[in-house]
Design a protein around this nucleic acid. Structure first.
Length: 636
RNA sequence: GCCCGUGUAGCUCAGUUGGCAGAGCGCCGCACUUGUAAUGCGAAGGUCGUCGGUUCGAUUCCGACCGCGGGCUCCA
């Protein structure tokens, strides 16, 4: 009895049941050497998978997203086989596909060395050359458990014990057998380009109480040239690493005397302060009031807020006299005290307390990284206290502010996530449910794609995160808004309602840029150091041609400064080409050449770092041009 | 905090059978007076991350600690 198979070209074929996907694709003229797997009814399978009933069949080419996934998964097996050959005492655990590649976690007493990586890679090449067929086998669970137990593969035994099905699938290539769902390439020779990239430690099942395994990362592609292109992209990303740019452009530095606590140099501080100034200008329009609050409090404060229990180990604490004090890691509890200093009527709400205070968190040493993970930072932080009726409008108000900021920076690719109640939480469940519903409503109205991340909320309330995707395709959470389900009650905050009774206000936590440090890091990498003109530490560098134009050069700098433009002078005894090169490398947006010709007519000869020379113009015209352009949102 | 790697001049980096430490750029000085991405010459500059061990002798070998990098865990 034949079955009916539909192929991707729309044709139908009558074939014998048990015919393999590859035979069917061949018969349909859809098979070529780029095809490494197939889809049966949209499910990825091996080329050798039998067709047992009416279905549709489509080829998977190696360069397609699904094809790359197959290649990468097979590469993980390839690596595991090589490791077992070279180091038979090693236990294999799991080896999944990740963005651009794969990894495999191994359990072994002796750590792998970088030299081992080279040996593993060369063994992988041998296995590719041997071109072992990769075959799928279905085994009863118990038999598979016995098999892996005999092999000493205790992690595999643990994995199978967690699988409910009566049968499991194993894949065999040469002497190597691994538990795996598949699908895989038909033979090891079909892996076109693979390279091991790094070594790392990783806890078994991602739990720090478990054994530390050794993770080997690799990358795999449909062709050698794709692999090379990927490695080149990685290399280019390194060139725009904010830590590198921070040093090259003299923006900030980190010193062992204060781990994770950046020193902003004069030029970096310009960027930092301009961001603050920009947010302040928006706050004026959006009805925020800025407050200045203490850095150090008695720890009672965080005992009330609940932070002490959850984050005590991550705070800078000190014992003085008979009291314990702490440096604040966040502003919210302080703002609650501020709110409680007077009695608010419903007519006064909402109040929006903005605070650019520095915050200190004793982050674990292993997590510190440049400006993206620090112990000392500031946020464009604010807390909003409002009535329950005002909550939706306040959330919308925040979204509008966020949208305006993103437009100014030209951030277009944004996703929204709704993060719900975690296992450990404070406050009443009914408050949480209402808050999550409100966030869901607002998230959907933003027009950005929305995903829900269950259990990812803060311990005191659910949140929305706005994730921005940068030019390097990395996703960063910038803005967040959280509804607090715990603190208003714990701090016994109140306002007087229209009926004259007292009620608990709703409290929102929110930031648009997030940490200023991290925002600067992201902006630097996104723009490769070419900050928009309004944020550039130096708008223009005046380059004198000879000693004869020094005094005119000084005059030009002075005039630019009087116009509140950031200008500096390069009057060194060097050739123009040299000065240009240096200003270009410093990514100064405008260079202003002043030679005898310009000095004679009180002109300047500007040059843009982005686009070469401009026609000479009067000093006045140049100032006007710069003033008009150095405005948030005008230049991106 | 855990795993691996790493730490030499302001910056980028050389420096293995363990024997007084090197280059380029920059800084400083001198000459040149320069027209859109590197002018030439000269001089200065280093407790080789810190502490301890092995050794006649340690930048080099070993250990601990600190910092940094790549990951893991965490991220109010």
């Amino acid at each position: 009895m034949a079955i009916t198979v539909k192929t991707a070209d729309g044709a139908t074929h009558q074939i014998e049941p048990g015919t393999s996907a590859v035979q069917c694709l061949k018969a349909a003229g859809q098979m070529n050497k780029r095809i490494i797997a197939a889809k049966i009814n949209d499910r990825a399978v091996d080329l050798s998978a039998p067709l047992t009933e009416d279905c549709s069949v489509a080829p998977i080419a190696m360069e397609s997203p699904e094809g790359l996934e197959v290649i990468r998964h097979s590469s993980a097996h390839l690596m595991a086989q090589a490791v077992k050959r070279l180091f038979p005492e090693t236990q294999v655990t799991i080896g999944p596909v990740i963005d651009n590649g794969f990894y495999y976690d191994f359990s072994r007493k002796e750590p792998f060395t970088p030299e081992d990586l080279e040996r593993i890679e060369s063994t992988m090449r041998e296995i590719i050359k041997a071109d072992y067929p990769v075959t799928r086998e279905e085994w009863p669970r118990d038999q598979a458990v016995d098999f892996f137990r005999e092999q000493g593969e205790h992690y595999k035994v643990e994995i199978i014990n967690g699988i409910p099905e009566p049968n499991v699938s194993l894949y065999r290539q040469g002497e190597f057998v691994d538990l795996c769902r598949g699908p895989h390439v038909p033979s090891t020779g079909r892996i076109p380009a693979v390279k091991l990239t790094s070594l790392a430690g990783a806890y078994w099942r991602g739990d720090s109480r478990n054994e530390m395994l050794q993770r080997v990362y690799g990358t795999a592609w449909a062709s050698k040239s794709d692999l090379e292109a990927y490695l080149k992209r990685i290399e280019e990303a390194k060139q725009r690493d904010h830590r590198r740019l921070g040093q090259q452009l003299d923006l900030f530095s980190l010193h062992p005397i204060a781990p994770g606590s950046p020193f902003f140099h004069p030029k970096g501080a310009v960027v930092y302060n301009l961001l603050v100034q920009y947010m302040r200008s928006l706050y004026a329009r959006y009805g925020y009031t800025e407050v200045v609050t203490p850095l150090i409090y008695k720890t009672e404060l965080w005992k009330t807020s609940g932070h002490y229990d959850a984050f005590r180990d991550d705070m800078f604490l000190m014992k003085l006299d008979d009291d314990e004090y702490g440096v604040k890691p966040m502003n919210c509890p302080g703002h609650c005290y501020l709110f409680a200093t007077r009695k608010y009527s419903y007519r006064d709400l909402p109040v929006r307390f903005a605070d650019f205070s520095r915050l200190h968190r004793f982050e674990p040493s292993g997590t510190l990284a440049g400006l993206t993970r620090v112990r000392s930072m500031a946020q464009d932080d604010a807390h909003i206290y409002c009535t329950p009726d005002q909550m939706d409008a306040e959330l919308e108000h925040f979204v509008a502010l966020t949208r305006e900021v993103y437009e100014t920076f030209g951030f277009q690719r944004v996703d929204v996530s709704v993060q719900t109640r975690p296992e450990k939480f404070l406050g009443r469940v009914e408050l949480w449910d209402a808050a999550e519903a409100a966030l869901q409503r607002v998230a959907e109205r933003t027009g950005y794609p929305v995903t829900v991340l269950p259990g990812e909320g803060a311990f005191y309330g659910p949140k929305i995160g706005f994730d921005f995707r940068d030019v390097l395709e990395r996703s960063w959470t910038l803005a967040t808004v959280q509804i607090d389900c715990a603190m208003p009650e714990r701090f016994q905050l109140e306002y007087v309602t229209s009926e004259g009774s007292v009620a608990t206000p709703v409290m929102l936590h929110r930031a648009v840029l997030g940490s200023l440090e991290r925002f600067i890091a992201i902006l630097l990498e996104h723009t490769a150091g070419h900050l928009p003109l309004w944020l550039a530490p130096v708008h223009a560098r005046v380059l004198t041609l000879t000693e004869r134009t020094e005094s005119y050069g000084r005059e030009v700098v002075e005039l630019l400064r009087q116009a509140e433009l950031r200008a500096e002078l390069d009057d060194r005894n060097e050739k123009l080409g040299y000065k240009i090169r240096e200003a270009q490398l410093q990514k100064v947006p405008y260079m202003v050449v002043v030679g005898d010709r310009e000095a004679a007519d009180r002109m300047v000869a500007p040059r843009q770092s982005s686009g070469g020379t401009m026609d000479p113009m009067s000093l006045d015209t140049f100032v006007k041009h710069l003033k008009a352009e150095a405005v948030p949102g005008r230049s991106i």
